[in-house]
Design a binder for these strands. Sequence first.
DNA 1: CTTTCTTCTGAGGCTTTTCTGAGATCTTCG
DNA 2: CGAAGATCTCAGAAAAGCCTCAGAAGAAAG
Lengths: 224, 224
Amino acid sequence: MRDGVAKPRVLLVEDDRELAGMLAELLAGEGYETEAAHDGQRGLHLGLTGHYDVLIIDRRLPVLDGLELLRRLRARAVTTRVLVLSALGEVADRVAGLDAGADDYLVKPFEAEELLARLRALGRRDLEGAECLPLGTAALDLRRHEVVLPRGERITLSGREFELLRTLAQRPKAIHPRAALRTRVFTDSTGESIVDTYVYYLRLKLGRDAVRTVRGLGYQIGVV
Amino acid sequence: MRDGVAKPRVLLVEDDRELAGMLAELLAGEGYETEAAHDGQRGLHLGLTGHYDVLIIDRRLPVLDGLELLRRLRARAVTTRVLVLSALGEVADRVAGLDAGADDYLVKPFEAEELLARLRALGRRDLEGAECLPLGTAALDLRRHEVVLPRGERITLSGREFELLRTLAQRPKAIHPRAALRTRVFTDSTGESIVDTYVYYLRLKLGRDAVRTVRGLGYQIGVV
DNA sequence: CTTTCTTCTGAGGCTTTTCTGAGATCTTCG
DNA sequence: CGAAGATCTCAGAAAAGCCTCAGAAGAAAG
């Protein structure tokens, strides 16, 4: 997924450290970058950063229950995909999990293959788009790293500009926090203002409205 | 889903007409607008129109198998959410379904409740950015920190304004004491009159009646 | 080895937000 | 009525958030 530069990031919130370790290894083998939290409080804290592509949350967690964690994330407008793991497999349990905001619900014990397939299904949506991503009336050509304007003009983007714009365009309705963009497109060791600067570059090339600022929250793709 | 005006549209591709009829009824009862196709060919044709919010596809279908149908849709860049139904419940079957492009996979027999919960989960994903609290005739967009007026106008709120309004709107019938609001939205070390000031700001932006004063007791959300 | 493009840093400057406090206005009740 | 208390209004200072940009350093191209 992602074009070999950045791996999809998974946050694994699981108190059983043995299971967590095994899963982390499994995920690493599939090319995911995994971080782990062992209680709900920590999970909440990390989940709020928005640095992840998918969250895997165990339902039974110390300090803060899995579903409660999920509800709090959703209450704070975190839209990251969430897969809930649980030993509780009754229909009512599954319904409760999904209605708490989970995108999928997998009952333990499960097979590695199915977990991976469900992760792929969750991840696909954010990444798919084949060759172009819609960009208002324009489009982003993923192959050539160019923006194609309605009349056919093409504007070439540099590597970083492209990564940033693609990240925004992949989830056009979401608001992307600065910090998330910084870890995703750049690195955590990069200066704080790098995202601002690149938003500025994009606006220079594509026009003021290409990227929308939502003050205090982050950036969102706009009309090109 | 969509914006509360239009009902979400479901395309049901299922050859068992009895089951299809029951499901259609169930879905109608939940406010979905359902159309049915009874074979894969017809499902493909309708699915390609892109008129639907969700496709429910039975795996075993005449003329064109369910997974093959799904693959062809995906090959033609149809990104509509798909829930696959199947009597085949082995892990390998589920993995095959998901990897063919399904967003979710539900094994027959299933309970109505779970189908509905999974549909809700799928619908939610497109909704990103629309989660709202009702606010009289208007609504509070929790993701964007904006008030959406009936005609679609949007009024952006600052962080504090938003927190205050959300607190009030979360329990619309309650009267919120000044002290409680001050503790919750601001801090106890903030000046006594901070809540008054922000109520004033909200009324400036939203109109005099947005917040109701209950003298001696506190504030209550009003009509926007 | 020069030129050009890209990436990143950091400093200023502008705008919006937050908070304070003081006076105006309204309500209640003696 | 008039005083006391509650509430409203608002101007201005301080802080925070955001935008702009110049320049250094690095990478790629010629």
